[in-house]
Each structure stands twice: as C-alpha cells, then as structure tokens.
Design a protein around this nucleic acid. Sequence first.
DNA 1: CTGAGACTAGACAGACCTGTTCACTCGGTC
DNA 2: GACCGAGTGAACAGGTCTGTCTAGTCTCAG
Lengths: 190, 190
Amino acid sequence: MPTTTGRVSARERLLAAADELFYNEGVHTVGIDRIIEHAGVAKASLYNTFGSKDELIHAYLKGRQHQVAERIQVAVDAADTPREKVLAVFEGQIAVYAESGYQGCAFHRASAESRPGDRIDLTTREYRAWVRSLFTELAEQAGAPDPVMLATQLHMVFDGNGMATRNDRGPDSMPIARAAATILLDAALN
Amino acid sequence: MPTTTGRVSARERLLAAADELFYNEGVHTVGIDRIIEHAGVAKASLYNTFGSKDELIHAYLKGRQHQVAERIQVAVDAADTPREKVLAVFEGQIAVYAESGYQGCAFHRASAESRPGDRIDLTTREYRAWVRSLFTELAEQAGAPDPVMLATQLHMVFDGNGMATRNDRGPDSMPIARAAATILLDAALN
DNA sequence: CTGAGACTAGACAGACCTGTTCACTCGGTC
DNA sequence: GACCGAGTGAACAGGTCTGTCTAGTCTCAG
C-alpha cells in the first residue's frame, strides 16, 4: 500500500522491519522499539495500524505463509509429471535455503517461543496443515496407495531438511533431501 | 547431589524446576522468579550455585543431552544386528514422544530463542553433531557405501518426526518415521 | 485556504526482568 | 559450645518491555 506520492506507507515499512527482525532474531527477543526504529516510524503509528505486537507478529507470519505458498505453487505448476510435482515442493525452496542468512523455518522459530493454543501456535498449525495437505494431494495424484503416509514422510524430510540447512550442512542439504524424497516416493509407488 | 540427610539440595531442585519450566514454556519466557518459586529455593541460592540465568539454561540443556544420549545408547546396545542398531535410534525416543506433554526437541526450542553463536546455539550444535555422528557411525557399521549421506537423511527423518509428533500427529508419527527410516536404510544397503 | 487523515516525537505508566546485598537461621562437626 | 557452610527471605537497583497519550506536522482534495 504505497501512498499516492510513491512513498512507502507506515504499514508497509513496519511489515518489512518485522519480517527482517522477527525472522532473524526471534519474535520474543525483538522489542517494539527496535521495530519502529528500523522502520523509521512512530510508535503511535504501529499501534494505530496493528493494535498490538501480537497482531504485528500475526501479520508477519501470514506474510511468510503467503510467500512460501506462492513459491512452492510456482514450482509445482512448472513441473510436468505428477511424480515431478511431488519433488517440486522441495525445488520451490532451493533459492531461499541457499541464501546466506537462512535461519530455518520462520514458523518453527516463532512456534518455539509460543504457548500451546496461542495465536502463533495456531498460525503455525495452519501453515503445517497446508504443507501436509499439499503433499497429500500431490501424492494422491502421483498414484500413491497410501497418500497420507507418504505425505507425512515427505513432510518429515521437508522439515528435517530445513533444520539441517540452518544448523549443519547449509545448501548441501537440499540434494540429500531430494534424494531421500525420491527414494520414499519410488518406494511408495513401486 | 542429595545432602547427607536425604533432603534434596538446592542445586538439584533448581535443575528440576528449570527442566520442567524451561522445556514447557521456553527459556526466555520463564523468569528467575518462577524458577525459584517452583523449586522452593531462595534467589541467592540460585546465584550462588549457578552464577547467572545463562549458566542455569546451559546446565538444563546439558542435562537434557545426557538423558537423550543415555536413552538412545541403551536402545542401540539392546539391538542385535547393525541394521537394527540404526533403527534403534528411533526406538530410543518412543517412550518420550508418547508422553502427553511432549513439546518437541528441547534444543530446537531453546535454539529458536537464541542468537547465532551464543551459548545456547553452541550447545545445540554440539547435540546435533552428536546425533549426526552416531547415525554416521551406525550407518558405516551397517555397511552403507555412503554413510554420511544416509546419516544425514536419517537425521532429517529424526528431526521431522519430532516436529510432526509435537505439531501434527502425536505418537502416530513414530511408526511412520520408522517406516521411512527402514526404506532409506534398505535403499542405501540395496 | 481549509479541513481531514496519516503520521511523528517523545514523555509516561506500570509491569516485569536479572542480579546484588544483607542480616539471619539451621544442621552437623571438631 | 564454638564454628562453618549451605541456605533463607526480603528489599533494592537499574534496566527493558508493551502500550497510552498528547500536541503538533505534513500533504493533499475540494
């Protein structure tokens, strides 16, 4: 929502600052003051626009979900066969995982700081449910006899890959994850 | 370290309280006051014993690592063949994952609240390195031609299983993870 | 020129946090 | 009976946090 003059609105600058700081340092660690300083915005603007820090965190996570969904959907659409569409879910994340500042899945990071049942926890569950249902749908279209089971296994590799990328192996992790996904997929279809 | 009278020392009560509260609610969320209240211990005792909250967190994580390592080692030792020893790493976690209050891997939770390079981050990396090297060693003994690759894949399933157990599927997750590990193991040994 | 809406700077309230300090108690040992 | 180490309870310092509020600025449409 840029203003008519072309300048960037307070809302947009707040979201950009939240996206950067919350993701890199954690939603709990980063205080309101750092957000507004980084955004170059007055504190009152934050509270006029979002109402609370919780609401800003929620908007940040929803933005992340939107971005991930879009990236993966593009990769899936670009794949030709049902089998390749399953593997494309991993493909869609390659570019992001390869970034030097990749800190792991934003939802897992935020969720680790949340209490069960709170706003963050619910948003994380929504995101995970979306990934799960995507894998299930694609597994079904690929002809897997037990699509839920295959989807759960691929989801595990997907999550584990994010962790390994952040903590251990960096971008080298992705081809290993892809190989694992291929093995599991082929074993399910055999 | 119980005292000679059989009463439980302040140190031990603090560690027990930290283990429960830090794990369930997060190392950042839980303040010193809640710890000492839950432990039934004076604040000065905490600072005499551990020196700082950071040091208490570190002791808490080290305790967790010790517990996990012990559980898994017992399961591995109980397995007969090299192949079964690989799968036993999952076995060792079954009882814990089945607990109703399971909140996911303590290290991932703490790590999500940490800054790169700090004490928590280093301890988490240590833990992950231990898991990785254990999988690598067992994969080698099982005769995998590329033990590092297989170990990385199994580690992904291991981590993804923890996440799925906490967030989606509960204890149902474990047999699915075990099935995935079996497929990956057999494919590597072919 | 005027008025409306978005935005700003900064002080402030009230809660909560870590860490320090001090005077004290209690159980066991020499 | 004197001593000593471990632990206690409470007050306190100094900082940070979210959220509120006020008074004022800037821009643009009519």
